[in-house]
Design a binder for these strands. Sequence first.
DNA 1: CTGAAAGCGCTTACAG
DNA 2: CTGAAAGCGCTTACAG
Lengths: 347, 347
Amino acid sequence: MASRAKATILDIAREAGVSKSTVSLVLQGSGLIRPETATRVRKAIEDVGYVYNRGAANLRKAHSNVIGMVINDLTNPFFAELAVGMERVFQAAGVVPFIANTAENPVRQEEVLKSLMEQGVAGLIVSPARGTTPGAFRRIEAAGVPIAFTMRRLPESRIPVIAPDNHRGAVLATEHLIRRGHRRPAFFGGSSDLVVYHQRLGGFLTACETLGIPASDRLIVEGETSRKGGMACLETALATTQPPTAALCFNDAVAFGAMLALRKRGLEAGTDFAVVGFDDVAEAEHYSPALTSVAVDTAGLGERAAHVMLKMIQSRTTRAEDHIGAVSLVVRESSGPDRNSQLGDAA
Amino acid sequence: MASRAKATILDIAREAGVSKSTVSLVLQGSGLIRPETATRVRKAIEDVGYVYNRGAANLRKAHSNVIGMVINDLTNPFFAELAVGMERVFQAAGVVPFIANTAENPVRQEEVLKSLMEQGVAGLIVSPARGTTPGAFRRIEAAGVPIAFTMRRLPESRIPVIAPDNHRGAVLATEHLIRRGHRRPAFFGGSSDLVVYHQRLGGFLTACETLGIPASDRLIVEGETSRKGGMACLETALATTQPPTAALCFNDAVAFGAMLALRKRGLEAGTDFAVVGFDDVAEAEHYSPALTSVAVDTAGLGERAAHVMLKMIQSRTTRAEDHIGAVSLVVRESSGPDRNSQLGDAA
DNA sequence: CTGAAAGCGCTTACAG
DNA sequence: CTGAAAGCGCTTACAG
């Protein structure tokens, strides 16, 4: 039991009095083996303290059951929720995904991807780090390993992506703000090196157009996609000559930052300045004031991404259709009406 | 380049006009190979689109460079921060850790551990799921694979633990509350199946003894270690005939829950009821009111755990000393004085 | 239903 | 400094 030398199927075969082929068949759950034999083999497996060597098996089989999940920022609860959704379906399918964090660093991402490939992954689900070069996945694609992007996409890539309807979400949120009387809306956070940024900002602009907010009355403040970034955006916005009265934020982290900066100035989100987030992380509901946010069905997106990957692997293809998930606006306290406006919510 | 059949070292050897031994040596960065030869080989590696097969290598080498990190709850930002600390040192050491989430489920943990073992990990860092049985790691220990626990420990286990000084942290926090005039302190959240619970509760009780709070004036409310648990604890506490005026919470999540429940009743943490958390997650500082909490140097603990593991692997041992990390109390707004008391903070 | 044999892609002594 | 050969622990046809 406590033997240091690892037991192999040969040890099991000896113990059970069969050939190693038989052991292998039992290990794979083949129906070819007589039940009594299988039972005997299984007992031997226990007795010798056997640990299956997947590396050796993959060497021969040339297909593995490990899937890599490459996440750009694991400390953002949003991605943790996403990962949990994926894990749920992988678990049901009998594969254990390995999660790797790139911390938004393309170099780190390169290493992580390399390591996962060396480990012989059957597929890769990745939310690419900011600043990922278009060619970063060329080698993996060439090797025929299926990849799916989640949440983020790369420009000019043919890799399938599973993401929420960012444009629509931003439209919903912006219309909500405008209908509540905010005629000087702002867009906080994010930057143009992210495709998602263009989608969300695009929705913001579309809604402004539709509801007649002239370009001169819109404020766009780029910034980090974090609390810190949100704080900076708010400061910048309030320092303008004609400050906005409301902001759609790139994501919830930015929104939390903006709310924090408001409070530091003695202002309150919802009454003094309207704030809307994006993603609707679990925390949004519990914040004070509770954050109005665009819900993207995070876990559902994760599950979908996992299913797409499973299907790609099974059908031995590297192509799949994009999936754009439905979004909805969850109105809470942080997006009150403009106090100087006559309008209520005319939705 | 886009060839589907995977290139092997034999293909490289052919391309470069050397033997496969030479290729292998180049791959391992051996100094034995003439620089010109190495360069030629490296070019061939690029040309054939080679992906190193770590499984095959491990088969022969019998030691791998993959380390598994098994986390009980990845959606808790505390564990995400911990994981990031570990990753930092592993990255520097050239090993890519794979993270697996058990979602506080011992069965899931079993699967994850099995899969990691099959993958041939060199070592395992784990924060065990609640309800893990004492024998859960027996097989892994028998196989000679080093394990280190982080944050949590199992009763009667000889596996080294890297954790903060829970007792001391609870003493500090409780003394702080009592010195601020709270003579009826409570302990919120957690339950006795967690060793950590006993440590933190023990610190609470020690401080109560020391500062003369009789047992009849202390309230202990067990509960889930989540926001939800914290909300329930507060409700329970306020429903007693002589409610406490302050609470040390098992962790920050419980504290956030308690603060939330206070607000729902129109009360404010810090002025109406003092709340202290444990862990000092990044969010604590940004909460409103900002949460007083026991800082455990999360990232530092993660780094330490990684170093311990690296050393165990290197010295081929499964034993190491426990590491108990220093803690400190970060006083913020949530732990104001008892409004009915005459005392200020006499620290 | 079970066994003997070949081979997956690497590394490691051992020669030279 | 480089090559030929054995072997790591499995799976997979192929016989029987």
